[in-house]
Nucleic acid binder design. Sequence first.
DNA 1: TAGATTGTTAATCGATTAACAATC
DNA 2: TAGATTGTTAATCGATTAACAATC
Lengths: 214, 214
Amino acid sequence: MGKSYNNISMAVIRRLPKYHRYLKELLDKEVYRISSKELSVMMGFTASQIRQDLNNFGGFGQQGYGYNVEELYGEIKKILGLNNTYGTVIIGAGNLGQAIANYANFQKYGFNLKALFDVNPKMVGIKISDIPVYDVDELQEFTAKNNIEIGVICTPKEFAQDIADKLVKSGVSSIWNFAPVDLDVPEDIIMENVHLSDSLFILSYLLSNNNEEA
Amino acid sequence: MGKSYNNISMAVIRRLPKYHRYLKELLDKEVYRISSKELSVMMGFTASQIRQDLNNFGGFGQQGYGYNVEELYGEIKKILGLNNTYGTVIIGAGNLGQAIANYANFQKYGFNLKALFDVNPKMVGIKISDIPVYDVDELQEFTAKNNIEIGVICTPKEFAQDIADKLVKSGVSSIWNFAPVDLDVPEDIIMENVHLSDSLFILSYLLSNNNEEA
DNA sequence: TAGATTGTTAATCGATTAACAATC
DNA sequence: TAGATTGTTAATCGATTAACAATC
């Protein structure tokens, strides 16, 4: 099952996927060895921060040498839990739900998409990337029966809380929420939000306040 | 043109859209007055942090009373630059590009979508939410001529850097990037990333390391 | 071995929280 | 006026950076 880490700060955790991305890229370029200094130039973190971050999880480097890219990539992948598989469903088969369903990489990293759900009768019954779309009325039963761990909410915001409640009742352990609201769930449920409009509004802020220094 | 703020920490800026959301919600519920204490309960920030955050931009409250919701909402909206309008284009008219084009709220907040661009000849010429889809070859000319300030990149990651280069050359001041890569742009270009897979990987991390305290 | 670079401790910096005088 | 709650300063906490001994 691999080691399990606690008390790692969210600041560190939120940097892990970036390490994963850059190490993958290095591996694709057949770079097999890298120092924290070199990585720092590529990634825009300090070398010190990189060494601190990695040492939260173990000593993956070697003095005088640096890090073995392949090994480190493997470790980060393991730490991120990408060697596991997770039963996943998407609720809301509109453009956003379809975009996620079609993103093949997610399947590759163990997110095993089992079904989409929608209210639109025209969608129900069709397949998207080979995954069936069911009526949202069947969500609870399907989720409970099929060992679903991740529910992805791609509905309009009005329905998001209701869907979240149903997901929780049928036993999911986590929700990936794209609706532009904060959802109320028991505290043992893992909630990761993607608030697109928040992101756009930050862009807007920076755009309208970008007068450099005096 | 409104005031312009500098030296505000990104930690504060990234909280602003959440204030905007909650104040909008209060306004819709016809709540006209709120204290930092009450807001703190709703939003999960400390009352102290809320007062600190808001005071970066001015004293919007009144001792002994709290904040006028309508006024504060208006101020936050102004601070976020949501009273301006921004010429916007989307590159990549696949599911994700379409999802963004269809999200009516963005138009409402001043993001004036002028065109989508795609390489797929089947897409070129059609309209999405009344917005035309052009061939990506026309991107530079269109962007330069139509005063576009925001380019939204919804292409596969292989094309993202090339598109970013073209956007920069034709004069956009900011990029909203959905491709799962970090793009290289001049430092005066504002870049806001939405790395969906990073977010999913964080969910995965939390899922595979969620053994509570010992 | 000498040079390089890690792992790790200590110092610094920044962000959050607490406290309270000002004042509505 | 008395009570409430802000704006703001001071204290604390946490995260980042610097430094360097350990060691490959």
